[in-house]
Amino acid sequence: MFNLKIVLTGIIFVSLMAIPCFAPAAETILTVQVKESQMRTTPSFLGKIVTRVFYTERVTLLEDRGAWKRVSKGRAQGWIHASALTARKIVLRSGKTNVRTGVASGELALAGKGFNAQLEAEFRNKNQLDFTQVDRMEKITIRSEQMESFLKEGLIVPPQEGDL
């Protein structure tokens, strides 16, 4: 009953159609949208760090697993969490260009203006605010290993898949 030839041709045809979705033919470039992030050997915050990436740096998408993306930068390859990346281009730009006209849609402009350190300083002086505590607070950083032992010590166990 089954015409094997037609089935096989069909499967091959459909598989070819599906290729762009699993291995993008056109390169997908993503931009780092956090000050600093890490490229890791495995899709996990416990993965070994391959290299560091910084704000506005571009990486090439190699594999997409939703929350984690395998990307490359130069010769380095590794996993970065999706929340550290954006599909929008972040443009570092100074000078006269009007943000409205100078930036294509889908791009975010780091215009010469905008809310930046200079405006913060003005705002601080005008309102006599003290940023010392904000700076101190921003220095408190917990490492992944500390988080691991915190969870372990508190017997905090994530539910197994299917429990939810």
């Binding site: 704000y55 972040i90 809310f115 930046n116 913060e120 605010l129 607070m137």
Partner: peptide, 18 residues
């Protein structure tokens, strides 16, 4: 931009701490 959001947030934090 994420950087602008960062500066907005820092100043909001400074107001809370005032």
């Amino acid at each position: 931009t994420p950087e602008q959001q960062y500066y907005i947030g820092r100043s909001v934090g400074a107001v809370v701490l005032s």
